[in-house]
Amino acid sequence: MTDAPSLSVRHKRLIGILLLILVLGGIWYLLSRTPPSAPAFQRGAWNQATPVHVVPAARGSLDVQIKAIGTVTPLHSVVVRSRVDGELLRVHFNEGSEVEQGALLAEIDPAPYRARLAQAEGQAQQIQAQLANARADLELYEGLWEQDSIARQQLTSQRALVEELQGSLKANTAQVEDARLQLSWTRIVAPIAGRLGLRRIDPGNQVSSGDTEGLVTITQMRPIAVEFSVPEPDVPALRRAMAADGELAVQALDRDGRNLLASGRLQTLDSQIDLGTGTLRAKAVFANEDTALFPNQFVNVSLKLQTLSSVITIPSDAVQFGSRGTYVYLVNPEENRAYSRVITLGASADGRVAVVEGLDEGDLVVLEGLDRLRDGREVIISERDGE
Results as ranks from 00 to 15, higher is better:
14 L>C: 11
84 V>C: 06
219 T>N: 07
374 R>F: 08
61 S>E: 11
295 P>T: 11
154 Q>E: 14
151 A>P: 06
264 G>Q: 01
344 T>R: 06
48 Q>M: 15
35 P>M: 04
333 P>E: 14
50 T>Y: 04
315 P>N: 05
382 S>C: 03
135 R>H: 13
158 Q>H: 04
8 S>E: 10
115 A>W: 09
377 R>P: 00
209 S>R: 12
11 H>D: 14
276 G>W: 00
312 I>Q: 02
1 M>N: 14
231 P>T: 02
12 K>L: 13
110 P>M: 04
277 T>N: 04
90 R>D: 05
94 N>E: 15
249 A>E: 09
172 N>P: 04
225 A>W: 00
98 E>G: 11
106 A>N: 00
90 R>Q: 05
379 V>F: 02
193 A>L: 01
72 V>L: 15
261 L>F: 00
71 T>L: 14
355 V>N: 02
119 Q>G: 12
361 E>V: 05
53 H>E: 09
351 G>I: 03
248 L>F: 03
223 P>N: 03
319 V>E: 01
139 E>I: 11
308 L>Q: 03
299 V>G: 00
296 N>D: 14
387 E>L: 15
308 L>Y: 05
130 Q>M: 10
340 S>N: 06
387 E>S: 09
289 E>R: 09
320 Q>S: 10
235 V>H: 00
139 E>V: 13
153 Q>A: 10
326 T>I: 00
202 D>E: 15
251 Q>S: 11
298 F>G: 09
134 A>N: 04
51 P>W: 02
293 L>S: 01
370 L>C: 06
256 D>C: 03
203 P>D: 01
364 L>R: 03
134 A>I: 05
223 P>G: 03
228 F>W: 04
285 V>W: 08
198 L>E: 06
203 P>Q: 10
